[in-house]
Design a protein around this nucleic acid. Structure first.
Lengths: 195, 195
DNA sequence: TAATTTTCTTAAACTATCTTATGGTTCTGT
DNA sequence: ACAGAACCATAAGATAGTTTAAGAAAATTA
């Protein structure tokens, strides 16, 4: 794999702690690089999730398809963010989610066994995954709060404000699916926002 | 503190891993017991969150009060569950949440400094807090999915089904605030559910 | 570049949910 | 046991969001 991409991951970790050389060595042996075309998936409904994934470049969406065939976006993952389906990864349950590239993307992946190995061999790696997960939890909690307390218009403005770079790169259909409205209604919200 | 209540916490941990004697000793010195009356709070808006809290008995609600003075329930925490405001606890930011007892309750609390000390002295404690947080994340994600894809009626049925014991102990006003509808509308949903 | 697909907007009719108000019931603290 | 507070049901009118359909604009692919 390109060493510059592993370096991007190492730089990311260095923001959290001084990574020990033994951990760097482990990462060097187990981190896999994968290039994705637009619309290509790294996880499909019904599969077992076997990887933890780090986005080097591009954007991935994590979505669920309901019984009527409608897709609902749970999460966008862009550069220097992690994505996986914890439920499937840890409990060996087939996933109900799908993770797909919205742009041509490059990701780094760690297989489940290698991940557990890293947890066991580097308490700091373990700890920092805890902290990363805590931050992910805070973000989800904020989203829940938005949905029980804010209107669709407020959620849209919040999204624009919180993810200004994403909102330029992602189609409104994807944004509508993320904030939980129809694309048609988002269109009226957009008109209102610029009025 | 009552040793039987510490024992309940230790039993809880034993479900995750064989707790080392050194960790038990640490817990024995730092775990604080607190009794709460109905409506008594362990965290109020604007304060700094300084504790991780484990519920031994009772139910706590975590809610946010919006600019119009309306309360929105993010979470209920009952026996053998954890509650805190991660954002406030880790980033030293004043909280926008409030954590209040719905019933007379008994909780165990670990102060921030003691918590960090536990993380440093017991990698297994650290690891299991990661796993607990991952599960909390999965639960929040499930809630977000509900809100972007399901109707209020479906969310109500889901709540009844997922938390049958809670729905008996909690008033409908609290449930309405949790699933994100007005109490009046929940009333019509309830009629529909029993029709 | 042309052809094709996807995205975005608009509008009208429809449905879900909220607001306000009222009255009866059940809890809770003293 | 009583008084006050909180809770629950019901209903009418208002608002927020969806559905369907159709056409224009933009992006993607050949």
């Amino acid at each position: 794999m390109s060493s510059s991409r592993l370096q991007q991951l190492l730089n990311y970790f260095e923001d959290y702690w001084a990574v020990e050389e033994s951990t760097v060595k482990l990462l060097r042996t187990c981190v896999l690089e994968r290039k994705l075309k637009r619309k290509e998936s790294i996880l499909g409904e019904g599969q077992l999730c076997n990887h933890l994934t780090f986005v080097v470049q591009g954007i991935l969406k994590t979505f669920h398809t309901d019984k009527n065939g409608n897709q609902h976006n749970l999460q966008f993952t862009s550069e220097n963010k992690w994505v996986t389906d914890f439920g499937s990864l840890y409990n060996n349950k087939p996933t109900e989610l799908c993770i797909t590239a919205l742009e041509p993307s490059i990701v780094l992946q760690i297989k489940k066994e290698d991940l557990f190995n890293l947890y066991d061999n580097s308490p700091m790696f373990d700890r920092n995954m805890r902290i990363i997960t805590e931050n992910a939890f805070i973000e989800q909690q904020e989203r829940v709060l938005q949905h029980i307390s804010a209107t669709a218009y407020e959620r849209y403005l919040y999204f624009l404000n919180k993810y200004p770079n994403l909102s330029n790169r992602i189609s409104n259909i994807q944004i509508a699916s993320y904030i939980g409205v129809t694309p048609e209604f988002l269109s009226t919200l957009r008109k209102k926002a610029t009025a």
